[in-house]
């Protein structure tokens, strides 16, 4: 009985497919523009996160105690508190201290800082997994510590860290949905808006999920795989 009471409205919804196409035609442009904003947020925060990852990942490996400690505090702080908390703090609390950022800027900053902390750990792990023999060969050729790092270790780190970085980038795309909560008009925000006026929740959130899925699976992941192939070719592995 319970099953039937669930199924009947479900089938009615499905049978009512004119309404989905009607819905789609009416709201697709709006959702597409939301998706564009999502892609923008994603691109900007990925760039910021990449820069932070590299800087703090290398700082974590510094011989200098102070530099290393600063990086550790940064990384543990941003990994230890939640992304949404950081986002709200930047958007709602920073202005109280005189620093007001636009919703878009706040979102990019929070995502960049948060994912940069995770990325820094990947960079550190990547540098540490370059075989010892590479350091030794560079030293035997009398390269300075900076030359060893810049010319020998970091270029090899790229191919090692790309797969975990790709996973992190997909996580970043998913996390961009949070910026809707500080009024950035991204895909999630548009979906909430449409839901609030039409109550066609299955259509609107279902469509949003599918758009996110397409962005991840058919745009972002192929792009990241292409980067991996490119990097592999650089070291003559492809």
């Amino acid at each position: 009985m319970a099953l039937r009471s669930c199924l009947i409205p479900f089938l009615q919804q499905l049978g009512d497919d004119v309404s989905y196409w009607g819905f789609f035609v009416e709201y697709a442009p709006k959702m597409a523009s939301g998706a564009m904003t999502t892609a923008m947020v994603m691109g900007c925060s990925a760039l910021l996160a990449a820069v932070i990852s590299l800087i703090f990942g290398l700082m974590r490996l510094s011989q200098n105690w102070g530099v290393q400690a600063a990086a550790t505090v940064y990384i543990e702080f941003f990994r230890g508190t939640s992304l949404l908390v950081q986002l709200y703090w930047i958007y709602y609390v920073l202005p109280l201290m005189g620093l007001t950022l636009s919703p878009f800027m706040s979102g990019v900053l929070a995502l960049g800082l948060n994912f940069g902390a995770y990325g820094a750990e990947i960079v550190r792990g990547g540098v540490q997994s370059v075989p010892r023999g590479q350091w030794e060969a560079a030293l035997a050729l009398n390269m300075s510590p900076a030359q060893r790092m810049r010319r020998i270790i970091v270029p090899q780190t790229f191919t090692l860290i790309l797969p975990p970085m790709a996973n992190l980038t997909v996580e970043l795309l998913k996390a961009t949905a949070l910026v809707a909560l500080i009024t950035v008009v991204d895909l999630m925000f548009v979906a909430k808006q449409i839901n609030a006026t039409t109550w066609l929740s299955a259509q609107v959130f279902g469509t949003a999920l599918i758009i996110y899925y397409i962005m991840a699976r058919f745009a972002l992941i192929p792009f990241l795989r292409w980067l991996e192939v490119l990097a592999a070719r650089k070291v003559g592995k492809a």
């Binding site: 030794e136 060969a137 050729l141 009398n142 191919t159 003559g236």
Partner: peptide, 28 residues
């Protein structure tokens, strides 16, 4: 004054044979 050849070769994998041989002479 000292050069070394290793058991595991330790060539730089991101460089060609020639690049391996010119890297340190140019940099160092």
């Amino acid at each position: 004054k000292i050069g070394m050849v290793f058991q595991q070769f330790n060539l730089f994998p991101h460089m060609t044979a020639l690049q391996n041989c010119i890297e340190a002479p140019m940099q160092v």
